[in-house]
Design a protein around this nucleic acid. Structure first.
Lengths: 335, 335
DNA sequence: CTGAAAGCGCTAACAG
DNA sequence: CTGTTAGCGCTTTCAG
């Protein structure tokens, strides 16, 4: 099982090093010889053993994508962007689901280090203690953090402009004439969510007319969205619009509205965040802030590749990608 | 960057082969020596280079998952099952998005072969010509095909019991008293879909009472579902229930119903297939046939691992996993 | 331009 | 139980 470079060398009557050169660099070898070698390689159906190559070059030509769960459509989109970028550079991508478990995460990283991956793209990183951060940094493997708004210390980061997104959502609702708006979101510690909140509040407070804004926190999932919306409806009957910190919460909000017989957007306007594919399928199609998920995965891999190519660890890069409002049919214009 | 087995050997005053044994098999080495070596390894923060190991053992301890697009939630779920199973065996999983492009697919396979992956899990395989099939088989890498109902020739297969699923859907609607049912589905060539259709038709024809059944074909996506439903409504006004060949089509069907002012389930009953996470989030929650997606990924990896472990290519295995009806709120009982 | 030789880090006989 | 010795398949000096 396996025709090696030796076979090709023997068969074409040259030395293995010549075969190697002919197959790789290309230069430093006679055009004729090269063509001959190539022909033989094809005839023999030779496939270079990348493992062997990796052993000598020290690089495996593979990257890893560490995320909490690929079933989350947000991550699936990021993963696709990352994989496409990796493929374009002829790298492959190892998928790791960490479930946000710090232990599992470190175990993955450790195993990836043994495999000599050329870089790791970490999304939804579990909180790391100092020792773990240092362990990561000490690995000598390029790492880029996705969706970490705070500086990644020694690591490069990629994230969306969450604050602007929050501002965009608020401004849209303001423009539509809403004067009592609720923002339903997750816990304070969540960096991205609090950035969105900050943008939202900043904008609302800067409004000319007096605007009532209220922020409610809960789980940032479907159920959380549904429950928080119920609270909003109960406690703040004057609210005419809800800005959900992500699309899934918005779906929950829509469910609660429906169950209470409220029509969206007639009785309640709704804005989400993420622009998941599903937000256009749900009814009514959701107005939301688009996050360039695919591009984030792509950008992260590009940075990783640059880092991996570089001889020494370069200065970390922080890339912030733009967001935009996608107007669909979940918001109404107030009288 | 890189403490090797040599360093550990020198530092602990034994030969590298002893270190290797201490770290791997465990047996054939004095308990004391082993502990000492292990301690030194830890102290030096030694991580074995798996690439080097792979070169000599001939196995890379990694599998590949080839699918059309990870953004499809169905595949994401399969991928999660596969990754969990791989992780449990300490293998890692390389993600490949082929977009159902035969060329891209073969290119991936070829590259994976160069990397010496220990097995390939192929989902949504592009149609392969004879030469390609042979090329695949000739690679000597274990391959399992997912979602291929027809025998995979030399390959093992894993798929859900689609025919039973179709039957289950039909029976449910029949039990509810529906007597005019439409099945909206994809092209005839699609093996899984035609299995579902067969189960559906078989059951409907076996019904005691006379039942009108009609099958319409189109794209098996959201738009297709929406368009086919419009056709059904226009051409077959007596239809009281639609069985969509997959959930996404059912979502399209729901959209059309909504746009025409029809209420589900009051005016139209709807059954899907797949049980995507979203089918419980949409309104009304969709009654559907559950496909064990996670388990399919898991099973495929288990077979792959068994194949990879085996010395010689064993006889291919065909695994068919059970499906079940998930009753939610998109169907009504007829008078 | 090409060949010879060293060696990447590790495992696996084979001796002892 | 432990050390010696070959390589795994390839790249990469270093000569020629």
């Amino acid at each position: 099982m396996g025709v090696t470079i030796k076979d090709v060398a023997r068969e074409s009557g040259v030395n293995i090093s010549t075969v190697s050169r002919a197959l790789n660099n290309g230069y430093g070898v006679n055009q004729q010889t090269r063509e001959h070698v190539l022909a033989v390689a094809v005839r023999l159906n030779y496939r270079p053993n990348r493992v062997a190559r990796g052993l000598v070059t020290g690089r495996s030509h593979s990257l890893a994508l560490l995320l909490s769960d690929i079933r989350n459509p947000f991550f699936a989109e990021v993963a696709r962007g990352a994989e496409d970028a990796a493929l374009a550079a002829d790298f492959d991508l190892i998928l790791c689901n960490s479930d946000l478990d710090a232990g599992k995460q470190m175990q993955y990283v450790s195993s990836l280090a043994e495999k000599r991956v050329d870089g790791i793209l970490m999304n939804s990183v579990a909180a790391l203690n100092r020792a773990q951060r240092e362990q990561l940094a000490g690995l000598g493997i390029p790492i880029v953090l996705l969706n970490r708004s705070v500086g990644g210390g020694p690591f490069s980061t990629v994230c969306a402009d969450n604050e602007t997104g929050g501002a965009l959502a608020a401004q849209h609702l303001l423009d539509l004439g809403h004067r009592a708006i609720a923002h339903i979101t997750g816990p304070r510690q969540h960096g991205n969510l609090s950035d969105r909140e900050r943008g939202f509040l900043r904008t609302v407070r800067a409004a000319k007319n007096r605007v009532h804004a209220v922020v409610l926190r809960g789980d940032f999932n479907f159920t959380g969205g549904a429950e928080l919306t119920a609270k909003v409806l109960d406690r703040y009957p004057k609210v005419t619009a809800i800005f959900a910190a992500n699309d899934v919460m918005a779906f929950g909000a829509a469910r609660t509205a429906l169950e209470r017989g409220l029509k969206i957007p007639d009785d309640l306007s709704l804005v989400g965040f993420d622009n998941l594919e599903f937000s256009s399928i749900i009814y009514p199609p959701l107005t939301t802030i688009h996050q360039p998920k695919y591009e984030m995965g792509q950008a992260a891999v590009e940075i990783l590749l640059r880092l991996a190519r570089g001889t020494e660890s370069q200065t970390p890069e922080e890339r912030r990608l733009g967001v935009k409002l996608i107007e669909r049919q979940s918001c109404r214009k107030m009288a």
